[in-house]
Design a binder for these strands. Structure first.
Length: 293
DNA sequence: CTTACACCCTGCTCGC
DNA sequence: TGCGAGCAGGGTGTAA
């Protein structure tokens, strides 16, 4: 799930249930996810009203009436399930009465509007925390974040500066959250294929002057923006499904051109290459060595 | 400054 | 049918 488009989709899915509502009851079923929950996590949330919800890279931030900010990260396997069908059920009893708890349901938010929001995370690489006023700037997870790939400042010229002098391969640089914040393994593979750039190519080689380099940067910037935008659009269309009890996502994988497609023919028009797989920076890459150079 | 790798944790798939 | 190996969309910390 959780690369930028999935986080954006989750944010939009949570909005109707959370935004403007208060936390009526918070159930925390274990002391930690990836990191320990902050002190008195449930108590500090209880009664707080949600003023605004935003995405930053792969984080969701929830501004609260208490002045604190709830920070959510889904890690590898985190997911939220929203149930809005229980408005008449009194908070606090619903969850236990249904007996619907799944094995890795670690946190449950019961909102004042009757929505029940359940966080499930088998691998527990996700985390939640609360930041006080002014703590966002110094929060270590936010401090080093790179440029937002869907922001106005993201364009070919920005890539010129970001890649300048970098000897590391494109794959590693694009995955580095300190350079561009929000890309993950899937969309890096997909964007590189669309831009016909090899994941093994040194990032610095598309920086600098020259019509060819400028064209490559523009292709890559466009590819990144397009693949994220299309994925969000596809996720948005599945929001109705997402909001239902079994929040199975899985909308965009049918449109992957290379991800997890080892051995299949390259989908680029006119290319007769075959998708291959190799491990780069500890993560699998899929690409066409014929048209991606 | 790199880059590589182990690690966090559980579940699923695949080959034997 | 069972069982171990390998792999998974995240990020961090360490060592070289």
């Amino acid at each position: 799930m959780p690369e930028l488009p999935e986080v954006e989709t989750v944010l939009r899915g949570l909005g109707p249930a959370m935004d403007g509502a208060s936390f009526a009851h918070v159930i925390v079923r274990r002391p930690n996810l990836r990191f320990p929950f902050p002190e008195r996590f449930a108590e500090r949330l209880s009664g707080a009203r949600v003023l605004a919800m935003r995405r930053r890279a792969k984080f969701i931030t929830v501004a609260l009436s208490t002045g604190e900010v709830l920070v959510l990260h889904l890690g590898m396997s985190g997911r939220f399930t929203v149930d809005t069908h229980n408005i008449s059920v009194s908070p606090g009893t619903f969850y236990h009465d249904t007996g619907a708890a799944h094995t890795h349901d670690h946190v449950v938010f019961i909102m004042s509007n009757g929505s029940t929001i359940t966080y499930n995370d088998p691998r527990r690489f996700g985390f939640m925390t609360l930041l006080g006023p002014g703590e966002q700037e110094s929060y270590p997870h936010f401090a080093g974040l790179g440029i937002e790939p869907l922001g106005n400042a993201f364009h070919a010229q920005a890539l010129d500066r970001l890649f300048s002098g970098k000897k590391a391969p494109m794959k590693a640089v694009l995955l580095d959250q300190r350079v561009i914040a929000g890309l993950g393994n899937i969309y890096v593979c997909e964007a590189l294929h669309r831009a016909q750039i090899s994941p093994e190519r040194a990032a610095g080689t598309i920086s600098g002057r020259g019509a060819r380099k400028v064209a490559l940067r523009e292709r890559l910037a466009t590819a990144i923006r397009d693949v994220l935008t299309e994925a969000i659009a596809a996720g948005g269309s599945s929001l109705k499904d997402y909001a239902q009890t079994d929040g199975a996502l899985g909308y965009f994988q049918h449109t992957f051109r290379v991800y997890d497609r080892e051995g299949e023919p390259c989908p680029s028009p006119g290319c007769d290459g075959v998708i291959r797989r190799a491990v780069h920076s500890g993560r699998s890459s899929w690409w066409c060595a014929r048209c991606q150079t």
